[in-house]
Amino acid sequence: MSKKPTTKKEVQTTGHQWDGIEELNTPLPRWWLWTFYATIIWGVAYSIAMPAWPIFASGATPGLLGSSTRADVEKDIAKFAEMNKAVEEKLVATDLTAIAADPELVTYTRNAGAAVFRTWCAQCHGAGAGGNTGFPSLLDGDWLHGGAIETIYTNVKHGIRDPLDPDTLLVANMPAHLTDELLEPAQIDEVVQYVLQISGQPADEVKATAGQQIFAENCVSCHGEDAKGLVEMGAPNLTDGIWLYGGDVATLTSTIQYGRGGVMPSWSWAADGAKPRLSEAQIRAVASYVHSLGGGQ
């Protein structure tokens, strides 16, 4: 019987021994070490080739390869702008009322218009265009200034009561009847009761009857004989359940006392030499989008 030792490798120890427990030395393969060195070289080379090291107050080292994520984004935006160019030109050339008949434009305006809306309009009108106090809902069929697509387009383009844009829609403000001493507080109280009555809310009969006379003398020129509002004046219908600022006593009183005059900014206006906030195609897209939300006329 031969005494050849087994092929089992003798596991070396580091020579450390504590209470009879030896520390084994299990060396790593050498390629592991080379891989580690390679990652170091890669790291150094990368930080030279790419923007890496912060420089005080001026960003970072630019890197030899001239890579810039900001430039990449600009390139991407330019690429998509180029891709959209044809359809945007078509949109600008198409009559507003004809957009709904062109499936390509419908798809484009629904998406691009929604993007514009979420970026620029949602702050006041809400993400779902449901409106907020003072900012009308764009979903219903009740339009202060008209719900035809041309009207929506014009009002987006030039705004409403925007002092910067000479083409803006200039409708009269709701006068401040108390501040400007047009009505006595008691008269205001009576006309409020009348408005409550015609809008189907509980009201003081006696005061409302008195208020009707005051309404006929002071309010019908804008709100109409039947109090259903006049689009040309931008005056709302007072007989329905839709209120821009609120239909309760306190809000109605405040509205009559101090007046109202909501402003919508002009989206095509720009200071000399500056770019307008929205391009013609964007304005058309968002007008078409708003028109499609269910209230368009």
Binding site: G126, A127, G128, G130, G131, S137, L139, D140, G141, D142, N237, D240, G241, I242, G294, G295
Partner: peptide
């Protein structure tokens, strides 16, 4: 269902859900 707004009130009082 649309959550913003939950419903739309039309001029004649009709309630619309989107």
């Amino acid at each position: 269902p649309s959550r913003d707004p939950l419903f739309v009130t039309q001029s004649d009082g009709t309630i619309r859900n989107i």
